[in-house]
């Protein structure tokens, strides 16, 4: 499935080539090997300074980009100087390197990459756009992430993460939402990663858009309801926790108190719904999502608006008395 990023723990040069090679139009310059070298940093490096001899703080654990500057610099040197310049870079363990703009890498560079067994790619793309795409991709791969037990569904564009103990009825409630035209993102296991101050949720590639419904078994939502009933990725905008009714503390019935749940350091509004026989959880999830949308649009909740009206009415009454 698209938009599922490789695990940073096992993110190697080979996986980078497989997943991004087509988009960046990468071609191996020659068979250097080094595909098992790990990409450990979301940043990239321009090795120009290192080539010219300033190796202090050279970021060898980043992907090296040889753009026009670097290649022109190398071409101006004599073969012996070129070998020395390239050696400045390849005396370190280089993750991999990309020569951009369709430039031909000098023989000394190819030889050094071969000798150190570090992958060397070329791309016809311009340097800045390539760096942009590469950094964006690496940023996504290395974003902080966590796997949560819950079900993520898109309700009117609002990403609602339904949580609660197993067998409390998360899947059934979300199945009801799908039947009403909302879209399933992930059932049972939601991978959440942080992008800036937003949380993005996806499912597991293997599980896909299957749901496990007790008594029926695995249900393929995409096959049963069509692709319109599924969504690859979705921001997480609201967490709804389903609670056993007897465990629910009846502290707040008015909805005036705003609860938050921190996920990867981002605070997400949290609504806790006691599950009681006869309650239509599907409907309540839909209402919770709509209220969250409204609260964001208007800057305050309906409870706050109602309360303001009430306080104003009491004020007028006191003036009359």
């Amino acid at each position: 499935m698209q938009d599922r990023y490789p695990d940073p723990e096992t993110f190697s040069t080979g996986i980078l080539f497989e997943s991004l090679g087509r988009k960046l139009e990468l071609e191996p310059v020659t068979d250097t090997g080094g595909y098992n070298r790990m990409v450990v940093s979301p940043d990239i490096s321009r090795p120009g300074l290192c080539l010219s001899g300033y190796t202090y703080k050279f970021m060898h654990d980043r992907i090296q980009i040889f753009g026009e500057t670097e290649i022109t610099l190398l071409k101006q040197l004599s073969p012996a100087e070129r070998t020395a310049a390239v050696a400045n870079v390849y005396s370190f363990s280089v993750v991999c390197a990309i020569v951009t703009k369709g430039l031909t890498p000098p023989d000394e560079l190819v030889a050094a990459a071969l000798e150190s067994g570090s992958a060397l790619f070329s791309s016809p793309q311009d340097t800045t756009p390539l760096i942009h795409d590469l950094t964006h991709y690496l940023g996504e791969v290395f974003a902080p992430h966590v796997s949560l037990h819950g079900t993520l569904v898109d309700i009117y564009g609002e990403g609602v993460l339904v949580m609660g103990r197993s067998a409390i009825g998360k899947s059934e409630a979300v199945l009801g939402l799908v039947e009403r035209g909302h879209r399933l993102v992930a059932d049972d296991l939601v991978r959440v990663r942080r992008a800036g101050n937003r949380l993005i949720g996806t499912g597991d590639a293997l599980i896909g858009f299957h749901m496990e419904i007790r008594g029926i078994g695995f249900v393929s939502i995409a096959e049963l309801f069509g692709v319109g009933a599924t969504k690859e990725m979705q921001s997480v905008d609201l967490v709804v926790r389903l609670l056993d009714a007897d465990l629910t503390d009846e502290t707040d019935r008015s909805g005036l108190e705003e609860n938050l749940m921190a996920v990867l350091g981002v605070d997400i509004p949290l609504v806790e719904i006691p599950v009681l026989p006869g309650r239509n959880i599907t409907l309540l999830l839909e209402v919770a999502a709509m209220m969250n949308i409204q609260a964001k649009d208007t800057g305050c909740t309906s409870a706050e608006r109602l309360n303001r009206k009430l306080i104003a009415r009491m004020g007028r009454k006191r003036l009359r008395d």
């Binding site: 019935r253 008015s254 005036l256 309360n307 009491m314």
Partner: peptide, 17 residues
């Protein structure tokens, strides 16, 4: 000062139930 607005109302109900 504010009288029985939403939050106090919720507290009263919580005691009453």
């Amino acid at each position: 000062k504010l009288g029985i607005h939403a939050r106090p109302a919720a507290m009263i109900v919580r005691a009453a139930v």
